[in-house]
Design a protein around this nucleic acid. Structure first.
Lengths: 116, 116
DNA sequence: CAGTATCCACTGTGATACTG
DNA sequence: CAGTATCACAGTGGATACTG
């Protein structure tokens, strides 16, 4: 049986999970990993996300300390979002998650050879 | 800026995420990581989860190939759940997630020294 | 441009009762 | 024991219109 290195009886793992669940959190982080981005830019990149939803998600992530919101006192207004160091530190998770997802796909197609 | 190893433009990462989101998936996996378990045993261990919810989550995880359901043809009925190799392979994710969660807690308390 | 305000639909989860 | 069936409710995300 597998052995856990970091899990005792209860662990802060779910905190991490909650931080990146929600339909758009991962795509947002994934986009910002490439550099700062403006509101509209994010909205265009993130498929058919609505303004409200994008705003909500950004607010939550800002509150969680994953991203930073920089407002320029200009007309027309300009707001740029970027990752905080903490936000960037999520990278290894993406990496592991990605590896695992690929492994899953491989095994799943073995298990269901006749499925699409 | 951080650099991704495994993410090209789109990646199977979200598959992994979906597999472990849901209020109870992680606790269930976490419990089964210690060995096979019966339905009632799981229900007792998993705080106030309802039968319906537990059943649902287990069905999904079985469908996703994370767990195995073994029914004993006995009276009274006995059903045991255990992790598949794929289910066990999620361990590194837990590990990384756990590390990150701890890091988050640390940084978050720095950022809000007066918050609870 | 970057939001906010409403209203609405869908989904996930819970409570409760019943069953092979 | 290990579920299934039904109802209800809250949270999340979407559509649309409006604003500093």
């Amino acid at each position: 049986m597998a052995k856990l290195q970091n899990i005792d009886e209860k662990c802060p793992m779910e905190i991490g999970i909650n931080m990146i669940t929600g339909k758009w959190k991962i795509p947002i982080l994934w986009h910002l990993l490439r550099g700062k981005s403006r509101f509209n830019e994010l909205q265009r990149s993130l498929s058919p996300i609505t303004q409200k939803t994008l705003t909500q998600q950004l607010r939550e992530m800002e509150r969680d300390g994953l991203i930073r919101r920089h407002v320029y006192a200009e007309v027309p207004p300009r707001v740029e979002y970027s990752l905080t160091p903490l936000g960037e530190s999520i990278l290894p998770i993406f990496d592991v998650l990605c590896e695992w997802g690929k492994e899953y796909q491989k095994q799943y197609s073995n298990r269901k050879p006749d499925a699409d």
